[in-house]
Design a protein around this nucleic acid. Structure first.
Length: 119
RNA sequence: CGGGUCGGCCGGAGUGGUCGCCCGUCGGUCCCGUUUCGGCGGGGCGCGGACGGGAGGAAAGUCCGGACACCGCAAGGCAGCAUGCCGCGCGCAAGCGCGGGGGCGACGGAGCAAUCCGGCGUCACGGACAGUGUCACAGAAAACAAACCGCCCUCCGGCGCUCCCUGAGCGAAGGUGGGCAAGGGUGAAACGGCGGGGUAAGAGCCCACCGCUCCGACCGCAAGGAAGGAGGCACGACAAACCCCAUGCGGUGCAAGACAGAACAGGAGAAAGGCCCGCCUGGCCGCAAGCCCGUCGCGCAAGCGGCGGGUGGAUGACUCCGGGUAAUAGUCGCAUCCCGCGCAAGCGGGGGUCGGCGCCGCAAGGCGUCGUCAGAUAAAUGACCGCACCGGAGGCCGCGAGGCCGAAGGCACAAAAUCCGGCUUAUGAAGGCCGACCCACUCU
RNA sequence: UACCCCGUGGUGUAAUGGUAACACAGGAGAUUUUGAUUCUCUCGUUCAAGGUUCGAGUCCUUGCGGGGUAA
């Protein structure tokens, strides 16, 4: 399953809108915020890795790992959502398995995941 | 010769599988235009398409300099800033390399000491008789000489002492005038040091040695050094205080700047006033709006880099420099025309002209290289799994020396953002080179 | 990415190159029957490391940390 950058949220007003009007779930390593948008055929997502998380190398690495988690779960993500994932300060020290477990738990609780994979 | 510790320098991180990200080219597919129905052109893409390419030595910090762009075209002056021993080399500059000179520091040696010599380390190392300023506390005195305690002489004084007692001699405290700077002690720093002579006491007052200042044969391209002579000493420190001298620098920064589309809103013409990115000499003038998003700038470029072999010089290695060889040169800039697509910026293709440099050829004309292939923009270059490597908790075998298995964990610092040169800081595995020290061995 | 500022007790501010000062807060003590008030004492690597200087919070260099601006 591919994950091109076309699905990325890039504009500041999108992020602000989701944080203001959407709902959010907080876990050990991430904060997941999402907002329904039925005009979308697919979903769109944004990533936030603030300066508290470390230097550029650590932030880039975390972002890639989140991207990989979303790519792996893409077939089960319900369409019609904009969501953003914010890294928390503990995340750079965690392993990939820990990050994936935490993110999936948040996504399930937020109702982002469906049980049956989409074709 | 071997081993070890510490420091410096070079060196930039193994391998396989599955999946993914960004850019380019070529396909595939859908749509649009056109069509002589074969195609052609363009645009889009969600294709589990193909091929090629895809972070660093510091990409970092932003401490300097340059390119480039704009601003008043950049001229002069003021202000401000930067640099600062000498020579050579490289460089546009910042700066770097090598050599030399001088200062300072601890150490070693000589000497009674002052001081001198030596190698090592280190230095932002122009100027303190151009001027101004500062030097706290302590101390008598802190920058130009002076004198608190003190030493000495003269005179006054005279409560004391001695003697052969109407007298004579000695004389404390205190005071007047004068000479001196040895000693005291303070301080970061006190107007030379040590020894001798000299003197009422002293003093470079005189002498030897040393230091200092001036002159200086001679040496050196120079910074500077210096035999010798003279002066008896006068000349404190701070310019990373103001400053002076010399040299250099216009300012702002790719969010520079150019353009396109869309959106938005009134007012005015003179004057007042405003603007021109330190100020002046000097100019200009409708105001407001201008974010974001998109296109360009933006990477086929610099006489740029890499590989192999050999040589001379400097250096501790690294490295740097000189000359030669490999080695062979068709590209660049600007203007302009045509076609297609796109709302447009622009993109793609083609033609011709002008200018510049270069190889081959008489000429028309032709030619070809080891590479130059990061270009994102909420920002690509990775994720996961395995094997290597380090690591050794713990376990097993053995009488023992020792051998075998092996978990956790680890596998640096850190990621382009307009480009380039330097500086600084971080880290630096394996392997290699150099220096200092220690141990062992051999020889003397 | 580029540029510009700032670092002094727990907090907010001072300090011509010469003993780091003031207020509030905290702690201990005194006064008071107790408390408040008042008084005394206490609390510092001046962000770090080098350098200049006799002497550095101050001057210089390099780092570290924080903040700001970019119609």
């Amino acid at each position: 399953m591919r994950l091109p950058s076309r699905l990325r949220l890039k504009e500041s007003r999108d992020f602000a809108r989701i944080r203001k009007e959407g709902s959010s779930q907080a876990g050990r390593f991430f904060v997941l915020a999402l907002l329904r948008d039925d005009s979308l055929a697919d979903f769109r997502f944004g990533l936030v890795t603030g300066k508290k998380l470390g230097n550029a190398v650590q932030r880039n690495r975390l972002r890639r790992q989140i991207r990989e988690i979303i790519r792996a779960a893409r077939s089960r993500i319900r369409p019609g959502f904009n969501f953003i994932t914010v890294g928390r300060w503990r995340a750079p020290a965690a392993t990939y398995a820990e990050l994936e477990q935490d993110w999936l738990r948040l996504a399930r609780r937020a109702g982002l995941l469906q049980n049956e994979p989409r074709p």
